[in-house]
Write a protein that binds this DNA or RNA. Structure first.
Lengths: 341, 341
DNA sequence: CTGTTAGCGCATTCAG
DNA sequence: CTGAATGCGCTAACAG
């Protein structure tokens, strides 16, 4: 089914068909109507590749993100998908599993694929070859979740968010607060959040506790529960760098026989929807995940329309929100030495 | 950066460059090497649209699924993405939010987009216009999760899985077993699972309890907890048609002051990864979600290679597995009437 | 307002 | 084994 077939059936030239469909004003109402009618009943849809080749516009947005197994990115992609659909774009996502060589591969594919713009979540903007290469092209792109001074970004202020959280915990009487994180080197967000922890602890004048880095999320619960069994140094609150880790820390507490939040408060970061269905309901720094996606699409769409790449000046920091819930409570009062000893 | 530039730089014709890259055997080892080298250092990547237009193959697989907010589909898409990447395909996903008109839209876009094949999860194969239209084309497609006699499908045996589960619960002493489901009309899986419930209850010779249909997952916990507060007719086990609902039922039990699994057993369906990190750990009928995705890609790739659409004969039923865990236990023994009354 | 035509970048005949 | 030429389906520039 080609444009030519429609032209023939409607008794006009291909140019007229093209115009009737793409620029209805440039054609007589009568012919327009007839052409549209014929096209509709023939079920004609223009060939996207031919159109892309000709116009140099694909109406496809590329997306590069770490994984869909963490709901935070699934929620974001859902936001991207819906905003893209509304704006008439399709999406083409690639997952990297936090591996930079896969970032490279994805960007290559996307560049070759004539996408109109790219949304990406990279491990680390500073060290990403893919990003460097992309920035050298004239193609609009925007980073999601990443924060960087020299790239267009959409996200929240990670450092500030955690610092605020520490202040809040401190106001609840917590002093022994530990941070639990994935590998810092795998994610700039983790680094920024840890920085927020250190900053917050300094301001609250509490001694920092060693960072608990859990390399493999699968084994996180075991590892953390082992740590928690050591009662002497046990923290009263765990600040986790994301919700999945927080959920596993709650599990760890259970395995160690600790009640949450009775004996241990646990907070997450991301605000995945599921956190609100758990018992205890997850306290977390909620990011507007769908909005991060939608905003990214909006920026790209605007850049595409303006035919100009985005710059760091387009960056937007969206509001985060601490969602206080059941997994977090006042610090347990220190058991006074038993009076009859 | 066009093929012409590479040809010029390498001092050969565009045809030779094309051959050196796509059919290395058809070219002298020397020229091949030189061309490949030049192409590599120029960072040349063939234009996908032009290639697609010429070859009528895009190396893109379309995907149509309900939502990424349910991890079961995110897990599946992750499987699709990784299998596709391995096979040299990109993917183009559309979410439908369980709306058939969005299924239509997605299929239209995909057909116009020259994808080489489509993987879809539809609400109901029997009533899907999109599917009907797609089946009329010569384009390979495969249904994931859906089961249907006249379409190629990859999934598990939903009915059997639930029937087995009922038998298992029965062996644990449960008799008052209720099913909790989303809207039956929104999903053939829900219907099949409910059929499995009825079948299982009949075989176990237990009286069926009315289906608890929760239209809006957001309010499910409240609704179910209200039901659970009525002690007279309270079930001892809730069989949920998916994991998200099960998680909310556990929440509902908590709200109603019931312990899981002490006073109420709860089971899910899907086997989302998160279920294993919860407390109580979620008992569920686990589907091989990533494998469903991978298998679908494999079938498509094979059909594309053979240049022949798939038929119902290619359908595969993968093994499900009941994952016994903490949310499910022996039925509470009936409290005998107090002897001193 | 409508038709004719060139060319987007590539793979693939057909000659040489 | 290599090069020249054609056309995939479409839009846009140019003529009429």
């Amino acid at each position: 089914m080609r444009i030519q077939d429609v032209a023939q059936a409607a008794g006009v030239s291909v140019a007229t068909v093209s115009r009737a469909l793409n620029a209805p004003d440039k054609v007589t109402p009568q012919t327009r109507l007839r052409v549209q009618q014929v096209a509709a009943e023939m079920g004609y849809t223009p060939n996207a590749s031919a159109r892309t080749l000709r116009t140099q516009r694909s109406r496809v947005i590329g997306v590069v993100l770490p994984t869909l197994l963490n709901p935070v990115f699934a929620e974001c992609l859902e936001g991207i998908a819906s905003a893209a659909a509304l704006a008439g774009y399709a999406i083409q996502p690639f997952t990297t599993e936090y591996r930079t060589e896969r970032e490279d591969h994805a960007v290559n594919q996307l560049l070759a694929g004539n996408v109109d713009g790219i949304i990406l979540v990279v491990s680390n903007p500073d060290s990403s070859d893919a990003l460097r290469r992309l920035a050298a092209e004239r193609l609009p792109y925007v980073l999601a979740y990443n924060q960087h001074a020299r790239h267009p970004c959409v996200g929240v202020d990670n450092e500030k968010a955690v610092a605020e959280l520490i202040a809040h915990l401190s106001s609840l009487g917590h002093e022994r607060i530990a941070m639990v994180s994935g590998l810092l080197k795998a994610s700039d967000r983790a680094k920024q959040r840890y920085r927020g922890y250190r900053d917050g602890m300094r301001r609250a004048a509490h001694a920092e506790l060693p960072l608990i880095e859990v390399p493999f999320v699968q084994t996180a619960a075991q590892e953390v529960s082992a740590l928690l069994r050591d009662a002497r140094q046990r923290p009263t609150a765990l600040v986790c760098s994301n919700d999945l880790i927080a959920i596993r820390c709650i599990r760890a507490a259970h395995l160690a026989g600790l009640s949450v939040p009775g004996q241990l408060s646990v907070t997450g970061f991301d605000g995945i929807a599921l956190g609100q269905d758990l018992t205890p309901m997850l306290s977390t720094i909620a990011q507007p995940n769908a909005d991060i996606g939608k905003h990214s699409v909006a920026l790209l769409a605007q850049a595409i329309a303006a035919d100009a790449p985005l710059t760091a000046r387009s960056s937007v920091t969206l509001a985060h929100q601490f969602r206080a819930a059941e997994s977090c409570a006042r610090a347990p009062t220190i058991t006074p030495p038993s009076s009859d000893s």
